[in-house]
Design a protein around this nucleic acid. Structure first.
Lengths: 154, 154
DNA sequence: CCTAAATAGGACCAATGGGGTCCCCTTTGA
DNA sequence: TCAAAGGGGACCCCATTGGTCCTATTTAGG
């Protein structure tokens, strides 16, 4: 399967959806990484890793020390999916030799499609920017997963 | 980098662009895998592999025997990029637990975003379907690769 | 009829990169 | 002063993919 979103990004969306339960800055209460791990079913070290990455990107805020934890810096509706993807997986592009492509492509002198992927990349970035985490975690609609309500709607 | 298009798909586009030089069915002349390998700079076994895959998908036609070779079944303008991607890399989807997702997701009972990726996937598929190989290999515009003209425009 | 050239199909090996874990340090409330 | 929690990074493992090769089949040409 192509266009494989990394698992880390998937986890990031789930974790942020769970974080949304307790709100965002400045009133939002924090949740700890172990707590989020238990709530989401994702292994604790992995949740911690995801939260660190999201923290560096400014998507969540971490409060250190006892009684510390994480909370969103923005409501889900203000977070485009593309931003999460970029934070976790890096730039959104279809090939390595794309967008300027100063990185050396061994077949550079003979490559027939060099520099032509830009419109494709732009289209995909636009699609991913138009969708926010609120769209993904939004109003309950999940036939097979009743727990969904506990995680997000509640 | 996310959304990484496989190298095989990249090769497929290059090879098909080269195949377009000699036309498509029914008048088009065939080109051999070794010849295409030399013309594109891609290793011969790899070119052969790509052509086999494209043949199974019906994007190229292979003629066996001496004086055999490959030719396009359609002009480049009639081949959406999405079709090449699907042929080489399989279905276009962002996550494994997507689009029905009967495949067992270990966190299925607790996953907050189950079934919500469909609009994202649809948007991406649409973007990839709106672009044809002719758009990629189209009129010459390649500052750093003059050989491009020999491959496609000539 | 025989040979050479070419595709068809699949098996096989190697390497890259990402998933996942763990360690140590810093911070901070009780 | 201690315990709880985040911050940052190093590390290993393995699944996926890129790439190669081998064999069978087909067909033009002498």
């Amino acid at each position: 399967m192509v266009l494989r979103l990394s698992k880390l990004t998937d986890y990031a969306v789930v974790v942020m959806a769970r974080l949304a339960r307790d709100g965002a800055l400045p009133e939002g209460r924090v949740q700890t990484a172990p707590g989020l791990a238990q709530a989401t079913g994702i292994a604790e070290p992995t949740v911690a890793k995801v939260l660190k990455i999201l923290g560096q990107a400014g998507l969540v805020e971490g409060l250190r020390g006892a009684r510390g934890g994480y909370r969103l810096t923005r409501p889900l509706a203000a977070v485009p999916l593309s931003e999460v993807i970029v934070a976790v997986d890096g730039p959104i592009a279809l090939t390595a030799c794309v967008d300027g492509g100063q990185g050396q492509c061994e077949a550079q002198s003979i490559c027939a499609v060099r520099g032509r992927w830009d419109p494709v990349n732009d289209a995909i970035r636009r699609a991913l920017s138009d969708i926010t985490l609120a769209d993904l975690a939004g109003p309950a609609r999940c036939g097979s997963a009743p727990v969904f309500a506990q995680l997000v709607a509640e």
